[in-house]
């Protein structure tokens, strides 16, 4: 197990380096955007004097590297600064929205992960049957429709026509948990449709891939029933790629849901990030991107560790 701890430490270290590079990249990308915060905030009404006055107030007249290192010095001590536009602390501006995003991601994941793995196993068992084909076409259709469009269709049938679920997922502080689940069902369902197909197909592929192995052939020749071959023999060795694709999709649920937020008016972090980019509000953009990057790195690490733990051969290297 010592190796594993060493591996985790090494990966965390590399992750920090990645975060640093990301922060430099994002900073200069925001610098390179045409126009600046003063023009963006004042809009059509900006005159040269007011723009200059605002730049001076925000300290934007100083050179870019100076501002980056100031930010970095703060970030290292856990202080991500204040929003340039509203003057609010970055942590409080992001806090509740990040929790909302996590909630929606968890909601979708709780539905999508078991369904897709189960379905994946079933279609691997019934491969090339009618059921396999139908499941294949359905899931492919659902991932190949743009997600905003899936959202619109769900709204049409489940909100406008039948009125079973609300079309808007705007949250209120005094909602009960059940109300919350009801209100956010449509965005969660949209996300489920988006990620299920990918996970299901990878589960199916990972299992079918193993079916040609000699040891499976052996089990089959011994007369083990097909479902037992898959669950007992193929699945344990297929966990690594499955965990990998699950991690990738979980990361997507957290970082890639801007469009779903827009369609369902859900107050998550993606909309905040897009707005902050439009306003050139660098501290917010930076903090959001780092949260996303950290999520991605941690989930990847978890997947790798999970793969090692579930694979006997990797757990006991030769």
């Amino acid at each position: 197990m010592g190796d594993l701890a060493g591996l985790i430490a090494k990966r965390l270290g590399l992750g920090l380096v990645t975060l640093l590079v990301v922060s430099v990249l994002i900073f200069f990308a925001v610098e390179l955007l045409p126009g600046d915060i003063a023009q963006a905030v004042l809009g059509q009404g900006a005159t040269e004097e007011t723009v200059a006055a605002m730049r001076e107030q925000l300290g934007l007249d100083r050179p870019a590297p100076v501002r980056y290192f100031e930010w970095l010095a703060g970030a290292v001590t856990g202080d991500f600064g204040t929003s340039l536009v509203s003057g609010e602390r970055v942590s409080s501006a992001i806090g509740t929205r990040f929790i909302n995003t996590l909630f929606l991601a968890a909601y979708a994941a709780v539905i999508a992960v078991p369904i897709s793995i189960l379905l994946g196993i079933v279609v691997a068992l019934l491969r090339n049957s009618l059921f396999d084909r139908v499941a294949n076409v359905m899931t492919l259709t659902s991932i190949s429709s743009p997600e905003f469009f899936l959202g619109y269709i769900l709204i049409l049938y489940l909100a406008v026509k039948t009125g079973m679920f609300p079309a808007l997922a705007n949250l209120r502080a005094d909602m009960t948990f059940v109300e919350l689940l009801h209100r956010t069902f449509l965005p969660a369902l949209t996300l489920v449709l988006v990620v299920t197909a990918h996970m299901m197909r990878m589960t199916r592929a990972a299992i079918i891939n193993l079916l040609a192995s000699p040891y499976i052939e052996m089990a089959r020749l011994k007369g083990t029933p097909p479902w037992k071959v898959i669950v007992r023999h193929a699945l344990p060795n297929a966990w690594a790629p499955i965990i990998n694709v699950v991690a990738l999709n979980l990361a997507y649920l957290i970082t890639g849901v801007v469009l779903v937020e827009v369609v369902f008016v859900y107050p998550g972090i993606g909309q905040l990030l897009v707005d902050a980019v439009a306003k050139r509000d660098f501290p917010i953009v930076q903090a959001c991107c780092l949260i996303f990057a950290a999520t991605f790195i941690l989930l990847n690490l978890t997947a790798d560790v999970g793969a090692i733990l579930t694979n006997p051969r990797l757990r006991h290297p030769k």
Binding site: I155, A159, V160, L168, N170, V262, F264, V265
Partner: peptide
């Protein structure tokens, strides 16, 4: 006062 930037969201919210 609810911010509804997406035209479809506005429309369905009004219809429903």
């Amino acid at each position: 006062m609810i911010t509804l930037n997406d035209p479809n969201a506005r429309q369905t919210a009004l219809v429903t």
